[in-house]
């Protein structure tokens, strides 16, 4: 077989692969930070009202139904190639699980606790920060985890818009199917994404351990 052995391929191209992996992770991480801040904010603003909360959930889930390739394609004429369409698309996709879990989590806080918090003299912002958000944090963190997993895959599409990341490997391989390294490229990109996803997941388990107070840990 004329194919280069997969391990040999990894050996010769590890520099490039590591750069791609790092960029992939970095893009996902940064978009997750933005999506988390936005998502929790949307949740906080809308959870008290029945219709606003539902509107937020419906809107974000509609975004999710747009095929990622189409979304990025649609963004290119507006914001150009490269990083901007990637970041925008990833952030939008990341929103849904976070918004939904934030709303569900905040609405799920025991009404008597909210009553108690108000009754002992907490102002509304204080109640939100000290009581409601900490109690809604476990479901929100779950939302963030789900979002991250999803974005890991979607970020690969970013290469279509000349974005950063392991998607480049996959697209290069797909473009040159039949050539010597085509399969290795696709394989390296895909496996890289899986490894990254697992690493992120492990990080979230750790974050959960560190940030969920012992009193409400399952």
């Amino acid at each position: 077989m004329s194919d280069v052995n997969f391990w040999e391929y990894l050996g010769t191209r590890h520099q490039q692969l590591l750069t791609d992996a790092f960029q992939h992770a970095s893009a996902v991480f940064q978009c997750m930070v933005v999506a988390t801040v936005l998502g929790v904010l949307i949740g906080v603003v809308t959870y008290r009202s029945e219709w606003a909360g539902n509107l937020a959930t419906t809107t974000t889930s509609t975004i999710l139904t747009i095929p990622s390739l189409a979304m990025i394609g649609l963004l290119i004429p507006i914001v150009g190639l490269g990083v901007p369409p990637t970041v925008i698309a990833l952030t939008l996709y990341g929103l849904l699980p976070i918004v939904r879990n934030a709303i569900v989590g905040l609405r799920g806080v025991d009404a008597t606790l909210v009553d108690a918090a108000t009754g002992i003299g907490m102002s509304r912002p204080m109640r939100l920060v000290r009581i409601e958000l900490p109690l809604a944090w476990p479901p929100i963190l779950t939302g963030i985890r789900v979002s991250t997993q999803m974005l890991m895959g979607i970020a690969a599409i970013a290469a279509y818009a000349s974005g950063p990341g392991l998607g480049n490997e996959i697209f290069r391989g797909l473009a040159s199917l039949g050539s010597r390294n085509a399969l290795n490229q696709v394989l390296a990109g895909t496996l890289g994404i899986i490894v990254l996803a697992l690493l992120f997941d492990a990080a979230y388990v750790l974050i959960g351990r560190l940030t969920i107070p012992r009193g409400i840990r399952a």
Binding site: A116, G119, P134, I216
Partner: peptide, 12 residues
Amino acid sequence: YAIQSAGLFPHM
């Protein structure tokens, strides 16, 4: 202010 079933904050 004290209420039924105490209303203690479980994360504190």
